[in-house]
Each structure stands twice: as C-alpha cells, then as structure tokens.
Design a protein around this nucleic acid. Sequence first.
DNA 1: AGGAAGATCTACT
DNA 2: GTAGATCTTCCTA
Length: 187
Amino acid sequence: MILPKKFYARDPAIVAKEILGNILIKKNQSILKGRIVETEAYYGLSDPASRAFKGRTNYNKWMWGEAGTLFIYMVHGNWLLNIITEKKDIPSGILIRAVEPIDGIEEMMKRRNVNIKNLTSGPGKLTKAFGITKEHNGIEVYNPSSEIVVEKGEIKDKIKTSHRIGVKNDLPQHLRFYIDGNQFVSR
DNA sequence: AGGAAGATCTACT
DNA sequence: GTAGATCTTCCTA
C-alpha cells in the first residue's frame, strides 16, 4: 500500500516521525527499496536552516509545491532528498537522512562501491545509491505510477529524537527523528 | 569571480 | 572520533 497524499499534508515534524519504518521505492531498470530510518523536519519561512528561508528562487521553488512531491537540492556535491509537507504555497518538508537497503542492493553497490553499512547511511549517500538527482524534482510519491513512491511498512522499533545535524542556527525543538539502534542511521 | 552550502571521504591522533 | 580537503550547483556582485 502506498501512503496517500493526505499523509504528507500535515505538520512536517509529525510527518517526519511517522514516515520512519516506511519503504522508499525507486523503479527503473531494477527495483530499489530502502526502509526509512532517519529523517529531519524543515519549516519554511520561520526556519533559518530551511532552503526556503531566504525566499523563493528557481531552484527551491519545489518547496512551495503540493504535499507529497519531491524537492532535491545539492549541497557540498551531494543531492539531498526531501518530501514536501503541508500544502501548496506553504514551504515545508522533511529530509530523508538515511535508509536501510532492502532490495536492489547489488545495483546500489555498483553505484557506490562501498560496503553495505556505508551504502545509504547518510542523506548524500542514499541519493547516490538510488541514483536520485534534481531530475526527480516534483515527483508525486503518492502516485502509484511515479518512478519513486513510498510504501507503508512496519514500525515496531523505538523512535528517538535529537537536534538536527550540522545545523548552525537550529530551532529550539527537536526536529530529527530516527530509529533507535539501527546501524544505518548516520552517526 | 567568489562564496556558501546543514556532506563525505581520507588520514590521522 | 576528530580534522581538513574536497565535493558541485546556484546565488550575489
């Protein structure tokens, strides 16, 4: 079952927490699957760490899109994968920071050439392993015919929270969510 | 032309 | 585990 659009049409902190344990799927030559184990929430205009904070530009305009669409941006030579939350014209979203490889591991290894533990344990690593670039901006992950979708998975592990990683001007509340003890959570 | 960007890799102590 | 070089777009001047 694919998560419906309304799943994403909520506060990003809630979506970030509840999407843990679900399955990120990319369909092209082969099927790639990864279980989402780490996320962060980003608010738009009230969040200095958000890409939308400084106003709308050509590359971040996707943050103003519909809930459940993708926003991908480059930082330090890495593509980072975000899913937009709330609703159109309200910029906010969640960043997928890490997944646990499930299917298509051979194809991921071919792209990354590292051991499995380092395959997808970071936001820039998983996009490389999945072959995700800005070409995938705006994809609807709730639409079954999309190249990238998110499917419902089991959630039985403990969820923990912390402050976001590497952020210079973080907000006072905890906006990073991860599955406790999972070895694919970035350190 | 220059710099910043919420990451990663490598090479150490 | 930490430190420093390097990563590739896009924005501002």
